[in-house]
Design a protein around this nucleic acid. Structure first.
Length: 657
RNA sequence: GCCGCUGUAGCUCAGCUGGUAGAGCAACGCAUUCGUAAUGCGUGGGUCGGGGGUUCGAGUCCCUUCAGCGGCACCA
């Protein structure tokens, strides 16, 4: 049979030869360097027999595919190490993930951080003995009997879940056996012993199902070389410095406290950012044909029952009885009858917006109506899900609902994508991932409607030239949605903007317009948000810029710092001039050295520090030091004020250049 | 909500096997007027997350509860 190599060379072997044989045949060094192979572009074990004509490439450490193999073998070696150290541990699954792998174990005793060191040491021993990796395809019943005999009930479940048509493949790393699809390295010694690290222990539900047992997950990272690992660990340290929770404290933006878990206390600095964003997005909405409304915070539970949210999200709503509680004395708890009507803090604005739409009679000529609200919503999120500004219980969305006819969906989608792109461009956010979330299993509406809706969104994205991934089955129960995700400092992605098609709510809440034909029709509702919520968006902006916000968003834009107290009066004059030009400026008149002031305001991420000493007083100038730069430049005062005023102008208000 | 870890001054942290709280920075006071990332000296500040227990004695041990952190689950 003929084996074609990547360089086009054809070699002849008898059938049944393995890639390992061929690698050694090509050269002794290649035989040693070989980690795995691709047979007709499919990544395979070196030990795989080649049955007929094939294209073959040998995978070595230099190959991108090598990294995944290393990580996958790390998972197996770690599981072996754990079972050798604690034989009563049951194994489950251990996939490769970004930068590394994890493996889920069932063990009565919790793993401790110290255990990670023990496991790593044992892993290095396993690597050092260079145990061969081999594989066999087993009969399904044999595999089940084997795992029943060894008490590995999770593996039994996994074998049973393998489709009948697929092989049940077993791997051995030395004496240790695991069910696995493969492929793997040729022996354990091919894992670089100094380029991996176990990073954390966490809980995880078996099969991702919160009704099933909680397992212990150990995470690890692995690279080709020690240098790569070190670089990764360094990057993690750097990322921790831009965490919005740390920067929020350092920049004095906001705080949380136990009396209002998950709700933000915005400090003056943080609220400056909020107000700048709100003013900005309001200008965008005004220019884009939206109307703005304000709706009640508390609404009767009847409305939430009608909308369907009561049934699906009741446990995540803050519900309050509509009654005046009586109180025996000052210290006694209020007495509630338990019979009052229930109200709920709104978890979303849509039903309220439908109520406004329903006032009066709407004509097809009125559509589309784009109804915006900076709506403050409350959701009683599980405590474990809260995360700084990125996941809160009280949030303000830059929400809007577009009521339109079905034939207007395409144009409205395009219009929104334009708005979205413009805003994120202004914000300097370029790393956006787009997802099209499609029909979930449990859903309202017929398939033909879903087909049309999903297609409309995909077409709009295509027309806008936007690349996107499908998130299959992740749409809302009432319609498909586009999700716009941003990445935080350490690579976690968070949904910011959203755009959703909804055919259901107008029906449930009886929204209607009179069509050209004089009959009543249901409008389509488009739910959309650009920022998502102010809370999350500000958190992501802070992380994106590592606190060094563009001037127009910086809470404290300029600090004027006199070098000698003789310059105090001039500093006050400079501040007054800056303020008159609309710049957020303050003087730092404290009796401290200029180096001290520079350090302190730099740490607080103030973009511009203006030092003024005798020379500046004399020349009516300022010495400008920009955050992140060490050099300073001298500018005449009037020139500096004009330049900063221009730079601090929000991006949408810049005169066209 | 689930698993694990953590909770000591405004911040960052120390406090060994239980003997009755400590540092640096910050704050305040005084001195210093010093040209681009920490001037010196001095002073004040803590119910050791809350509650309960064991003990002659608890920041240290146990129980419980709350919050934060890392995951998982959830996310209209």
């Amino acid at each position: 049979m003929a084996v074609t190599l990547p360089d086009g060379a054809v070699r002849r072997y008898r059938a049944g030869v393995t890639a390992a044989d061929i690698a050694s045949d090509i050269s002794k060094s290649l035989g040693k360097a070989a980690l795995a192979c691709t047979i007709d572009d499919r990544l395979s074990d070196l030990s795989t027999p080649i049955g007929g004509d094939a294209r073959l490439a040998i995978v070595t450490a230099k190959d991108p595919a090598a990294l995944e193999l290393i990580r996958h073998d790390c998972a197996h070696i770690m599981a072996r190490a754990v079972q050798e150290l604690w034989p009563d541990t049951k194994v489950t699954i251990g996939p490769v993930i970004e930068n590394g792998w994890y493996y889920d174990f069932d063990r009565s005793e919790p793993f401790t951080p110290d255990d990670l060191g023990l496991i790593e040491a044992r892993m290095r021993e396993i690597i050092a003995v260079r145990d061969p990796v081999r594989t066999e395809v087993w009969d399904r019943d044999r595999a089940i009997r084997h795992y029943e005999a060894t008490g590995e009930n999770y593996k039994v479940e996994l074998v049973e879940a393998i489709p009948e048509a697929d092989p049940v493949r077993m791997y051995w790393h030395g004496p240790w056996q695991d069910l696995c699809r493969g492929p793997h390295l040729a022996h354990t010694g091919q894992v670089p012993p100094d380029a991996f690290k176990l990073t954390s222990i966490a809980g995880a539900y078996w099969r991702g199902d919160s009704r099933r047992p909680m397992l212990q997950r150990i995470y690890g990272v692995a690279f080709r070389t020690r240098a790569d690992l070190d670089a990764y660990l360094h990057q993690l340290e750097e990322a921790a410095k831009r965490d919005h929770r740390k920067l929020g404290r350092e920049m004095d933006l906001y705080h949380f406290q136990a009396e209002a878990v998950g709700s933000v206390f915005w400090h003056p600095n943080g609220y400056v950012i909020w107000r700048a964003l709100e003013a900005y997005i309001r200008r965008q909405l005004d220019a884009d044909g939206y109307v703005e409304v304000k709706t009640p915070q508390l609404l009767d539970s009847q409305l939430w029952r009608l909308s369907g949210h009561w049934g699906k999200f009741r446990e995540n709503m803050f519900v309050v009885p509509d009654e005046i509680p009586s109180v025996e004395d000052e210290d006694a708890d209020p007495i509630l009858s338990g019979e009052a009507d229930l109200m709920a803090l709104k978890p979303m604005n849509c039903p309220a917006h439908v109520q406004i739409f329903r006032q009066g009679t709407k004509s097809y000529r009125d559509l589309p109506i784009r109804m915006a609200e900076f709506g403050c919503c409350h959701r009683n999120e599980a405590h474990g899900s809260l995360h700084g500004l990125l996941r809160v219980r009280q949030m303000t969305q830059d929400d809007a609902h577009i009521f339109c006819r079905e034939d207007q969906i395409a144009a409205e989608t395009k219009r929104f994508l334009d708005l979205f792109g413009r805003v994120y461009g202004h914000m300097g956010l370029t790393k956006i991932s787009y997802k099209l979330a499609t029909r979930p299993d449990v859903r309202a509406g017929d398939d033909a409607t879903w087909d049309r809706a999903e297609e409309a969104l995909a077409d709009a994205l295509g027309a806008a030239g936007i690349e996107f991934d499908y998130a299959l089955g992740e749409g809302a129960f009432y319609g498909p949605k586009l999700e716009f995700h941003l990445t935080d400092a350490i690579g976690r992605t968070w949904q910011a903007g959203t755009f959703q098609l909804d055919y259901v709510l107008p029906e449930r809440l009886d929204a209607a317009y009179v069509g050209e034909d004089g009959a009543k029709h249901r409008p389509v509702m488009l739910h959309r948000a650009v920022f998502g919520t102010f809370e999350r968006f500000i958190g992501l902006l802070v992380e994106h810029y590592a606190g060094k916000l563009p001037l127009w968003l910086a809470p404290r834009q300029v600090v004027v710092a006199p070098i000698v107290s003789d310059a105090n009066a001039y500093a006050a004059e400079v501040v007054a001039a800056l303020k008159a030009a609309g710049i957020r400026a303050e003087a730092d008149l404290r009796n401290e050295k200029i180096t001290y002031k520079v350090r302190e305001h730099s740490l607080a991420k103030v973009p511009l520090i203006l030092a003024v000493g005798a020379r500046e007083v004399e020349g009516r100038s300022v010495s400008v030091r920009r955050l992140g730069e060490t050099a300073s430049t001298s500018l005449p005062l009037a020139e500096a004020v004009a330049a900063f005023a221009a730079e601090a102008t929000p991006p949408d208000l810049h005169p066209p250049s």
